[in-house]
């Protein structure tokens, strides 16, 4: 075994040990009790959290993927620089500020939270869609054109299958980020597991804090896992190896 592997293993097992210690400590102090004693509330918050993430992510996918496709069409190619920078700029505004701004426009509640999360999810998806399509070998597109494929055939049979990996990676990043950021929805009164997290912070109550935060983390890990599985199914077999290389 070489040195790199050694260091890797040490880091890995140290992390496992830390996580295990944390859970033992939390369970010993019965910090997870709220999940069971107030399971009704917990389920409501969990559902709110998931709905927030799902609605905002799906909206973001519906906007960002077509936008990415559109901007890579020859007609709009020139606008790519501008649009990418606007999207980048959107990302630089702190999420709390976006939430606060949304309250003044959409009022308190679900709509504001969804909108803020939606704005936040657009960039990673958009950027990965554009990068995925741009990274396709120009010779391949040339061959497709030269063989008499129509633009929509090139898009659906060549460009999208070969950039699927990149697009899905963007969606995965966005959703995982989104699950974490959705905890802030509490600030605009949209509920979610953020309610317990912020309650815990305000009351110095580790029980609430951990009962809120750990499910958020697990949700993020679960989403990542599911999306990886989807990725494996959607990305064509022939393109998979190339992306790795």
């Amino acid at each position: 075994m070489n040195r790199k592997k050694w260091i890797g293993n040490i880091v890995k097992y140290t992390l496992y040990a830390l996580v295990a210690t944390f859970f033992i400590w939390a369970i010993a102090n019965s910090y997870f009790d709220y999940i069971f004693t107030q399971s009704g509330t917990f389920l409501v918050l969990l559902r709110q959290h998931i709905v927030l993430v799902l609605v905002s992510s799906i909206l973001a996918i519906l906007v960002a993927v077509p936008a990415g496709i559109l901007i890579t069409r020859p007609k709009f190619k020139k606008a790519e620089w501008l649009v990418s920078n606007v999207a980048n700029l959107g990302q630089t505004i702190p999420s709390l500020a976006v939430l606060a701004l949304m309250i003044s426009i959409l009022g308190i509640g679900f709509k504001s939270a969804v909108f803020a999360l939606f704005i936040y999810s657009i960039l990673p998806i958009f950027r990965n869609t554009v990068a995925g399509i741009d990274s396709i070998d120009k010779n391949m597109i040339d061959a497709a054109k030269g063989m008499g494929m129509k633009p929509h055939q090139i898009l659906f049979r060549v460009e999208l299958p070969n950039s699927a990996y990149s697009i899905l990676a963007g969606i995965r990043t966005a959703v995982v980020l989104n699950i974490g950021t959705a905890a802030l929805a509490y600030v605009v009164g949209a509920g979610g597991l953020g309610v317990w997290i912020f309650t815990g912070i305000n009351l110095f109550d580790n029980g609430f804090l951990i009962s809120g935060a750990i499910p958020v983390t697990l949700l993020a890990i679960l989403a990542d896992y599911i999306l990886r599985k989807i990725e494996y199914i959607v990305v064509p077999k022939g393109s998979r190896r190339i992306e790795k290389a």
Partner: peptide, 19 residues
């Protein structure tokens, strides 16, 4: 489009579709 489908086209970097 019709014209291109009636003409065989081969390029240097084979242009095969990996998917």
């Amino acid at each position: 489009i019709e014209l291109r489908r009636k003409i065989g086209y081969v390029i240097q970097s084979n242009g095969l579709f990996p998917n």
